[in-house]
């Protein structure tokens, strides 16, 4: 097992790596190495990473298939946008507060929806979450203060690259540390065998709702970022299509692999922009990808593999030193992009 010093070292290593990554991104953006348009694409990349990793928590780690992730995103988006538009505080205060409120609102909805829905298994759960997602959309469409079908306009453009970066890091860190804890193991045990989990003393209902609302929380945050990036919101943006788009990212990357979600969310956000004229075929390619991946590699590109900087450096080191393999204690690993 890992020693204390080793663990501390890993935290330091990952913190340094995260800072370096942030520095590199800002350097590339500020120096004009990539054009402004591409730089702004980093924001959708960021919120899609949050959406994919958070959906991965309920689809990959909990093993359920919710089809209403866009619904939670929309709740976060509208709550956050309405909040920042209503209050009159400095941006540095109201935006983080708004994101948090949006996340909490989405999480609450996650609990309200999750409590009844998670009593059902598999396909029924998928369909009931789909139903809830549609109901959320119809409600937003019919409310006055959400702007109805016209949507919300004039939302302040608060979402910047550093803000998104911080949110992504927090999301990945929180989901990762949750999974590598007793709560996370309880969630995994439900995916593996619900009856055995119950028989081992795990309250499966509690942990299902927990994972579900945790995942909704981050979807809500992503929604808030999205709202303050586009500055306009309409209920049409959050249909079943959006939920499936997020699902494609998770499935392609690998159900249960955080790194997979990060890589595929990045790739699937950037690819259509890089290949002009491709947009017409985008959804066709998405759906084909979904079917082909399921048939030929149901575990996705990365399976359940997760990247760990500490382990990887250790392995590289051991190749050079030609010593015996480093210990494979995975439990305290840190992975982030």
């Amino acid at each position: 097992m890992m020693t204390k010093k080793n663990v501390g070292g890993r935290y330091l290593l990952n913190t340094v790596a995260t800072c370096l990554l942030f520095g590199a991104i800002m350097l590339v953006v500020e120096s004009g190495l990539i054009n402004r348009y591409m730089a702004m694409m980093l924001i959708p990349v960021g919120y899609n990473i949050i959406l994919a990793t958070s959906l991965n928590l309920s689809a990959g780690f909990l093993g359920q298939l919710p089809l209403g992730h866009a619904g939670f995103m929309s709740i976060g988006a509208y709550t956050c946008a309405l909040f920042t538009m209503a209050v009159d505080m400095p941006a540095a205060v109201e935006f983080p507060l708004g994101l948090l409120i949006g996340g909490v609102a989405a999480a609450l909805c996650g609990v309200i929806i999750g409590l009844p829905a998670l009593r059902l298994r598999g396909d029924y759960l998928a369909i009931i979450t789909l139903g809830f997602g549609e109901i959320i959309r119809v409600i937003i469409l019919n409310l006055d203060f959400t702007g109805g079908a016209f949507g919300l306009k004039g939302i302040p453009k608060y979402t910047t690259i550093p803000v998104v970066f911080v949110c992504v890091v927090i999301t990945i860190f929180a989901i990762h540390t949750l999974i590598k804890s007793r709560h996370g193991r309880a969630i995994l045990s439900i995916r593996e065998d619900e009856i055995a989990a119950e028989a081992s003393g795990i309250s499966t209902t509690y942990y299902k709702v927990l994972a579900f609302s945790f995942s909704a929380f981050f979807a809500g945050i992503a929604g808030g970022l999205y709202a303050h990036y586009l500055s306009i919101l309409g209920p049409a943006n959050f249909g079943f299509m959006k939920s499936v788009e997020i699902l494609v990212m998770v499935v392609l990357g690998g159900l249960g692999s955080m790194m997979g979600s990060v890589v595929s969310a990045t790739a699937l956000t950037l690819l259509p922009e890089l290949l002009r004229g491709f947009s017409e075929y985008r959804m066709i390619v998405y759906s084909l990808l979904l079917v082909i991946v399921m048939i030929f590699k149901p575990s996705g590109l990365f399976g359940r593999y997760d990247f760990s900087l500490g382990d990887s450096l250790g392995k590289i080191g051991s190749i050079f030193r030609r010593k015996k393999k480093p210990e494979q204690g995975g439990e305290n690993d840190e992975s982030d992009s």
Binding site: L65, G122, A126, V244, M283, S287, L290, I295, P298
Partner: peptide, 19 residues
Amino acid sequence: SARISLLITAIGVSFLLQN
């Protein structure tokens, strides 16, 4: 294989036909 894979495939086919 797992039911979840089959369901995802069905969603994929549905989207493919639609698009």
